[in-house]
């Protein structure tokens, strides 16, 4: 879509240039004459003024129509206007987590997120391949780092599709082993999630991947209740029922989530109430925990409702206001020029 838009802009520019060239070709011609009285045009000043104002007026009107069209497209989400935040994450097709897969809407869609995990754009990718990655790469700012979340077709994937200079961090999901996850920011205590239910684990794996991507925590481990082995400084999130109480006692920092509350949270149909409860639960953690604020504010648990909200209203309000401002400016300019032209008729 972006390429198509660029081509359309290019064509419009070329057309406008040709139009201007054709219309002004005559005006550029000079005729040096011995007797200028033979070439007097009594109506010339008026005609010239009209001609001078005619072209800008035409261009203004074209720009106005184009702006209206672009705004309409933008409102309906069909026009990618890259004036917003820089893409830092891509959810690629093949992500096994069905709920996040729904963000991509189909297996053939790449979703781009910014650092706050807000969806910026989406684009269909008929086949997730090196070619499609190159396409993605071409649309990113040259030096912007990228974190890709999702199942990857091959281990050498980042180097196949992306520019060598780009810093690419890929966060594998269940399709690849967790040990292959690339992370260089393990400065916070590790988080151990003890969960036995396979369905919930799949969901939590993806959420953990987003944590890593959002640089909330760098080391998330999944263990089962039976084989749980946790370092003293690590956080422990126990997902289960009261039967896990003995485990909780072994850890200084433990957050217990009942299976029911976690399931409810992962439904992501929250209106904010459940997220607030989670917030309160997280806030119950000791204040001495490093980067607690980051954990809280950067948690994808908190952001999930926002993402959903963004999905329902694709257009960035800031972007829309910018377009509206441009539209208003074009409209005023067009009116002024029209008035000037009418005044000389």
């Amino acid at each position: 879509m972006t390429t198509g838009f660029a081509i359309a802009l290019l064509l419009a520019g070329v057309t406008a240039t040709l139009l201007i060239h054709l219309l002004y070709r005559g005006a550029r011609k000079q005729l040096i004459v011995a007797n200028p009285d033979l070439y007097t045009d009594e109506a010339a000043p008026r005609l010239v003024l009209q001609r001078i104002t005619q072209i800008p007026l035409l261009l203004l009107r074209c720009a106005f129509v184009l702006a209206v069209f672009a705004t309409a497209l933008s409102v309906f989400g069909a026009l990618p206007i890259r004036t917003g935040p820089i893409v830092t994450h891509a959810i690629v097709p093949g992500t096994p987590t069905t709920r996040w897969q729904s963000l991509a809407e189909s297996d053939n869609t790449v979703v781009w997120l910014d650092r706050a995990l807000t969806r910026i754009d989406r684009a269909p990718v008929s086949e997730f391949s090196a070619a499609s990655l190159r396409k993605l790469d071409a649309q990113l700012p040259t030096s912007a780092p990228l974190t890709v979340v999702g199942a990857l077709p091959a281990r050498d994937w980042p180097r196949r599709g992306f520019a060598m200079t780009r810093e690419v961090t890929w966060v594998p999901t269940a399709a690849t082993s967790e040990s292959e996850a690339h992370s260089e920011t393990a400065v916070r205590p590790p988080v151990v999630i003890a969960v036995d239910a396979p369905a919930l684990r799949a969901e939590l794996e993806f959420i953990a991947a987003l944590w890593r991507a959002a640089d909330v925590v760098s080391n998330v481990q999944f263990q089962s209740h039976e084989t749980l082995s946790v370092a003293p400084e690590a956080w422990l999130i126990l997902v289960g029922d009261d039967a896990t109480a003995p485990l909780r006692e072994r850890q200084s920092v433990t957050l217990s989530l009942s299976m029911a509350s976690l399931t409810a949270l992962l439904e992501m149909d929250t209106t904010g109430a459940r997220a607030t409860r989670l917030w309160q639960q997280l806030s119950a953690l000791p204040a001495a925990l490093p980067a607690r604020e980051a954990v809280v504010t950067g948690s994808p648990f908190v952001r999930v409702p926002e993402i959903q909200q963004r999905l329902s209203s694709v257009t960035d309000p800031n972007r829309l206001s910018w377009w509206m401002f441009a539209l208003a400016g074009l409209f005023v300019a067009e009116r002024l020029l029209s008035a000037a032209q009418r005044s000389v008729r």
Binding site: G26, K29, I32, A34, D41, A44
Partner: peptide, 22 residues
Amino acid sequence: ARGSLQIVEPESGVKRLVDSKR
């Protein structure tokens, strides 16, 4: 000539635009 034209008087250097059709 066709289109808009700039008439230049060499003695005075005065230029003026005219409409060729007229």
